[in-house]
Write a protein that binds this DNA or RNA. Structure first.
Lengths: 176, 176
DNA sequence: CTCCCCATGTAACACGTTACATGATTTG
DNA sequence: CAAATCATGTAACGTGTTACATGGGGAG
């Protein structure tokens, strides 16, 4: 369920090398994969085997050859099919709430410090997704007004997730 | 980062068998692990090796022996230490937002159907976490008022996550 | 001269899921 | 009689992370 479609998504905008894709993933918090070499290069090989991308090899005498991947018609169809697969609710791995659920054993000072630390972390995340949203719109301006609406909605949702988390933890801090 | 502490958490309330723990995980959406046999039985062996739990074997002639696990003092300390480890923001694997980001290729009818399906799924999740929160409080009433506050805060957060997701998708449906 | 960027990839490990395997007792 | 519940576990697989390995070019 899978990074492969995220790669195909990027390739709809432009042809890219594995290295380029790695940077795209590294720059993005909302695409939650680490984007490690292993995953990307393996996925590209698989996508190529399945005929969803083509590979152009640009030989360079003094450096390793650049392999530039381009999405195929079949690839575009596969991406479209994936977009229409039955949607699932987000999987939220909320470590901190599990920690809190067993936090009655710690003393008040430690608990406050924990909440403050958490608020700080969430705040950083919020700033990051906000900045990414701006950069994304600058770097890849939407081509249709519908795409603009969708992209705005996606960005808003990510911002709201962290903004609401931050409000919640601050409220809890007050309540205790 | 890890299921082992969730197991220790359950064991602070009562001694349990692997099978009991499996049910606890299966009943819980917020503890995001599947709670498969493999994970639980392996974790229990590891916890036992580390001295964080003790194992009492209750032999039964006609059935496999029940192995009842009890948390040790060392185990309680380990759990307490874990609760105080630096908190991290939630990891949100938001499949659907990735789908939406590339959804400009589908037609309006399909997109609406997709959003409706998604709203339905999220609604179901919301009902589930609400029901779980009630059951949890009935089955394991909090022992201190501080624990009650914490448990309420945790439950509220889970409900809010899905409630806000639902509002968001309904708003987007209107906007399109 | 060192560090970062470009550009490729492999190997080992950790984590998690599904399916397999066994067998008694209770419920419909 | 079939299915679910109790109770244990193993095997195979899939996914994802970290670390390893190589090597040229440019910036400070």
């Amino acid at each position: 369920m899978s990074i492969k479609y995220a790669i195909l998504g990027f390739l709809t905008r432009e042809s890219l090398t594995g290295y380029d894709l790695k940077k795209r993933f590294a720059d993005s918090d909302v695409l939650y994969w680490s984007g490690s070499n292993n995953q990307i290069y393996r996925s590209l090989v698989a996508l190529h085997d399945e005929g969803l991308v083509t590979r152009a090899i640009e030989h360079q005498d003094d450096a390793p050859p650049r392999k530039i991947y381009t999405i195929t018609g079949v690839g575009r169809d596969a991406l479209r099919d994936w977009v229409l697969t039955p949607p699932e609710p987000p999987e939220v791995r909320h470590h901190f709430l599990i920690q809190l659920a067993w936090a009655d054993q710690v003393d008040a000072g430690e608990l406050n410090a924990l909440l403050d630390q958490y608020a700080e972390e969430v705040h950083i995340k919020l700033l990051m997704v906000q900045e990414q949203a701006h950069r994304s719109i600058e770097d890849f301006p939407p081509r249709t007004s519908r795409e603009a609406t969708l992209r705005r909605a996606v960005a808003e949702r990510w911002e709201a997730i962290y903004a609401e988390e931050l409000e919640w933890v601050r409220r809890l801090r007050q309540d205790l």
